[in-house]
Computed example of a mutant assay.
Amino acid sequence: MPKNKGKGGKNRKRGKNEADDEKRELLFKEDGQEYAQVTRMLGNGRLEAKCHDGVARLCHISGKLHKKVWIAAGDILLVGLRDYQDGKADVIHKYMPDEARLLKAYGELNDSFRPNEGGNDDDDDNNGDGYIEFEDADVDKI
Rank of each mutant, 00 (worst) to 15 (best):
V55N: 04
A56L: 12
A56T: 15
A56W: 04
R57A: 05
L58E: 01
L58T: 11
H60K: 09
I61V: 15
I61M: 08
S62G: 10
S62M: 06
G63V: 02
K64E: 01
K64M: 09
K64L: 10
L65V: 07
H66F: 14
K67C: 04
K68F: 05
K68H: 08
V69D: 09
W70D: 09
I71H: 09
A72M: 11
A72P: 00
A73L: 00
D75V: 02
D75R: 10
I76P: 09
I76D: 06
L77D: 06
L78C: 06
V79Q: 03
G80F: 02
L81S: 05
L81G: 04
R82Q: 11
D83R: 14
Y84G: 00
Q85T: 12
D86L: 07
G87P: 00
G87D: 11
K88V: 07
K88M: 07
A89L: 02
A89R: 07
V91C: 04
V91P: 04
V91S: 04
I92E: 01
I92N: 00
H93R: 13
K94G: 12
K94L: 10
P97E: 07
E99W: 03
A100Y: 06
A100R: 00
R101E: 15
L102N: 09
L103S: 05
L103K: 03
K104N: 02
A105S: 13
A105P: 00
A105Q: 10
G107Q: 07
E108M: 01
E108R: 11
E108T: 00
L109K: 01
L109M: 08
L109E: 05
N110D: 14
N110W: 02
N110G: 11
N110K: 10
N110E: 09
S112Q: 13
S112P: 00
S112L: 12
F113C: 07
R114V: 14
P115G: 11
P115H: 08
P115M: 11
P115V: 04
N116C: 15
E117Y: 12
E117P: 00
G119M: 09
G119H: 13
G119L: 05
D121F: 13
D121A: 15
